[in-house]
Write a protein that binds this DNA or RNA. Structure first.
Lengths: 143, 143
DNA sequence: TCAGATTACTTGTTAATTGCAAGTGAAAAT
DNA sequence: ATTTTCACTTGCAATTAACAAGTAATCTGA
């Protein structure tokens, strides 16, 4: 499926490196988490998330994620000020990555949200299916 | 299993955030890849890896990964100059994370190493088992 | 044995990125 | 009409990354 994008000087074409270059920073995956697991869709929601991203960083990350086709942006038909950010299929396909990261933390680090862990551990495939199912209810525009 | 570590001001205890704070940078996962998939064990091997990490960054990352118990360091009994870096069990448990990241890239971005992708896609569990099996042959010291 | 090479770094210095605080313009609410 | 909300931008300081060079300990080959 990968379409040719004018790729600006990647360090290497190793598939792990490619994902690290796209997602390997302190905020991108948290924004995706907020969209995927908490249903966040607006700039202010991301700003108000617990970890407190700075507004300029958020703007940059949203642009980067959109550039890579991980999220899509639409205007809110009900409010001309608002933009609605949604995960694309490509963004939704990061669910297994997030899930494995959560499981790793659960196994090896102190953390919160034991309920999430319990749910994933009980049946990983079912968890992934339910996340995707919820997303299908609020799909991103085909663009 | 998570033991209490004097945790210096995490942004949040969300399990995804915890893993992002430990691994979310441009180099950590590449070092782990080199150890896990290519069997690298020394400083110079990491330096010579394709993406060309800077020497001071590598030193910092190795310290960080050791601090978090993801890698362990031993002296080389055959060469007093050398240190041997190995993945711990905790580090090895990142295999599913790396694997899902690779699969995501394979599905959505241009990349190289189709042979790796083919191998993972053919039988993911078998791939993970074989990676772990190779690691068991060169285990890290229990520390 | 001793010069040269190797290994795992450290130490500057510069460039890039992140974070903070404040501000802006368009649209909506009161 | 004024205030508030929303999605940002701008300017600046602090942190981090990258580049280049150097160092101490150890090993290797003549």
């Amino acid at each position: 499926m990968p379409r040719s994008r004018p790729r600006n000087k990647l360090r290497s074409g190793c598939p792990l490196n490619v994902s690290v270059e796209i997602l390997g920073d302190r905020w991108s995956l948290l924004i995706i988490r907020d969209m995927m697991l908490r249903g966040f869709r607006s700039y202010t929601q991301f700003l108000d998330s617990y970890e407190r991203i700075a507004t300029n960083i958020l703007a940059h990350r949203l642009k980067k994620l959109e550039h890579y086709g991980i999220i899509a942006t639409q205007e809110d038909p009900l409010d001309g000020r608002k933009l609605i950010y949604t995960l694309t299929e490509k963004g939704m396909d990061l669910a297994p990555v997030l899930t494995e990261m959560v499981l790793w933390t659960a196994a090896h680090e102190e953390h919160q949200n034991p309920e999430l862990i319990r749910q994933i551990k009980k049946d990983k495939q079912k968890f992934l299916a339910s996340v995707r199912q919820r997303w299908l209810g609020n799909p991103s525009p085909v663009n």
